[in-house]
């Protein structure tokens, strides 16, 4: 697909990185401030979509990208499931057990496994949304050929 004009490219270059950083902030601080895995993941996907829409790319590169995102998605949901299954072996032996120490309330490293779930669910959401978007773009390109 073709990119957009120079002004759009420059603004996207300035803003996409900031959106990406904001997504990571929302994701990591999910247990302290509003937000969490879903919001952060959707923001990261938004920054990727902005960059792709502004700059454009050819089909072969997009296909490589799509392989990467679907692989990331599968691996991160597998890790989230394994974090839940690990509760069977530690402590009170319950699925979705919070087995790490909860720490001091209000600090960044606290709340046991909740930050880990936030991060991996966030990566999964981001990768899934980018995969859907890339599938639509590649379909459009293949039709036009």
């Amino acid at each position: 697909m073709k990119g957009m004009s120079l002004i759009v490219k420059k603004v996207a270059q300035l803003i996409a990185g900031l959106i990406f950083l904001y997504g990571i902030y929302i994701m990591v601080h999910g247990h302290l401030t509003p937000g969490g895995g879903f919001a952060g993941g959707a923001l990261i996907a938004g920054s990727y979509i902005l960059a792709i829409l502004a700059y454009g790319s050819d089909t072969i590169k997009l296909k490589k990208e799509e392989t990467g995102t679907s692989l990331t998605e599968s691996i991160s949901i597998f890790i989230a499931l394994m974090l839940a299954v690990a509760g069977f072996f530690i402590g009170t032996k319950v699925f979705f057990n919070n087995y790490l120490p909860s720490g001091k309330i209000g600090e960044l490293i606290s709340a046991g496994v909740i930050p880990l779930y936030n991060i991996f669910i966030g990566i999964e959401v981001a990768a899934a949304l980018i995969t859907i978007f890339l599938a639509l773009i590649i379909y459009k390109e293949e039709i036009e050929e």
Partner: peptide, 27 residues
């Protein structure tokens, strides 16, 4: 849970099954 954000605490601890099902639906 030690989580300051009550919604995240409910979502990932008390109701983890819902979140797992939701992630599966997105996948």
């Amino acid at each position: 849970t030690g989580s300051t954000n009550l919604v995240t605490g409910v979502l990932f601890d008390f109701r983890g099954y819902d979140t797992l099902g939701e992630a599966t639906i997105l996948f």
